[in-house]
Design a protein around this nucleic acid. Structure first.
Length: 150
DNA sequence: GCCAACGTTGGC
DNA sequence: GCCAACGTTGGC
């Protein structure tokens, strides 16, 4: 089983939204090749840290799990979608999505400022200067350091 | 709202 | 293939 971290703007889709959902939710709209490649590596059952970005309190809001591996992202083909991509066609869609559900809630949001202070997370792209990667792997070691705060 | 840093585009 | 210009991300 692998661990991941994925960012979402809570104004768009928050961890609470995922918890409220009756069914698995599609994690779509990823339009960066490096992030896309990580989506493709995901397996059903993997856990991920649900990170809130571009908001008043950036940080980890909860834990989700992957319930369906990567498949072509339909929003890339939808001209009405903000994630529409002229590069994509039915025959050849470079973008993909996964399905996720909430795994468990955590006692409090763990702020980015606190994550930056932890030892052992230096290699995590999230805390590296200038990094904008929205989907990234988390090692078991990194996961346990963070999970100790749940 | 500001701005640093990044990824992408497109001219050459 | 280089690189300047541009658009986007995302913390502050």
């Amino acid at each position: 089983m692998n661990y991941w971290l994925m960012k979402s703007e809570p104004d768009e889709f928050s961890f609470a939204d995922l918890q409220r959902a009756a069914q698995p939710c599609r994690w779509d709209g990823v339009r960066n090749y490096q992030a896309r490649n990580f989506l493709r590596s995901m397996q059903s059952g993997d856990l991920f840290l649900f990170y809130h970005s571009s908001c008043a309190e950036p940080g980890i809001a909860g834990v989700g799990k992957i319930v369906h591996e990567a498949y072509p992202d339909p929003t890339a083909l939808d001209p009405q979608s903000p994630y529409f991509s002229a590069k994509a066609s039915n025959e050849k869609n470079p973008w993909c999505a996964v399905d996720v559900s909430a795994a468990h809630s955590i006692a409090r949001l763990i702020p980015l400022t606190e994550l930056r202070q932890l030892n052992g997370l230096e290699a995590l792209a999230l805390v590296q200067k200038g990094s904008r990667l929205s989907v990234m792997p988390v090692t078991a070691e990194q996961w346990h350091i963070i999970a100790a705060l749940f």
